[in-house]
Simulated scan of single mutants.
Amino acid sequence: MRYTITSLVALILTACSVYSPDAGHEVVLIEKPWLFGHGGVDPEPVKTGRTFAAVTTDGVDVYMQPRKYETELHDTMTSDGVPISFHAIMVLQVADSVALIKNFGPSWYLNNLEEPFKTMVRQAVRKRGMNETAISTTALDEIDNEIRDQLVAFIRDKALPVRLITMTVGRANPPDSIKNQRIETATQEQRVQTEKQVKLAEDQRMAAEQSRASADNAYREAMHLSPEQFIQLETIKMQRVVCGPEGKAACTFIQNGATPVYNLGR
């Protein structure tokens, strides 16, 4: 008797499917009877706990939390004919798992949203030039807002039971040739600025030298000195600074061709 009960329980279990979704998931049951009934999608999803279903019933796991979908868009043409690339991101959240699987199937994003999303991005970028798209953050914000409004309208019109949480086309990536040209242009512009600063410093130094020369010449004329006398005066001033009480050098001055005599015995 005990063997019979055990066998019966084992038979029942092997004839059933067991579903126990994790937190944040729901399982939509799709009944596919072999002999009787019409089957179809069960109106109530499996949300928590453990559920037993017929062996002919399939379960589709649906993630109910916000999920990120990423799309690479290569060679998206701008209005001036420059191909740029984007790494676009869209975050969606399922609102009704049963309606989603019943009306759009497990591959609902791939079949209904991915290509329209790419088309929206291409059309928005085609209205703008490479410079404003690749450099100006204002242009990218405008593109994001334009596509976001189109996506919300598209999801509503198609009756997709999902919510758009956020989306962005990300940073625009121009071709390497354009990047190299921009680096070269920036280098040249920096070189020009550096040369301007060097010339400005040289002009300021020349102006300072000219101003000092004018001041020295005005002093010489006021003292009624000849150029030779002024040079001699400046020499004396220099010697006084170097060899005077405040100077650090021991100096011997030789004038008029005289030969110095040193006491070597001391």
Rank of each mutant, 00 (worst) to 15 (best):
M1R: 08
T4D: 14
C16I: 00
S17T: 13
V18H: 02
S20I: 07
I30H: 08
K32W: 03
W34Q: 13
H38S: 14
H38L: 10
V41Y: 05
P43E: 04
E44M: 11
P45W: 02
P45M: 05
T48L: 05
T56Y: 10
T56F: 01
D58C: 04
D61C: 08
Q65I: 03
Q65M: 07
R67M: 12
T76W: 01
M77P: 12
D80L: 11
I84T: 06
S85R: 04
H87K: 13
A99R: 15
Y109S: 02
L113C: 07
L113R: 05
L113T: 01
E114K: 15
K127Q: 14
M130T: 11
E132C: 06
T133Y: 03
D149H: 09
Q150K: 14
R156Q: 15
K158I: 02
L160Q: 03
M167G: 00
V169R: 01
R171P: 00
S177Q: 10
S177C: 00
S177D: 14
R182C: 00
R182F: 07
R182Q: 13
E184H: 03
E189P: 00
R191V: 09
R191Y: 09
Q193I: 04
K196G: 05
E209V: 15
R212F: 09
D216I: 13
M223G: 00
I231A: 14
I236C: 03
C243E: 01
F253G: 06
Q255D: 06
L264F: 12
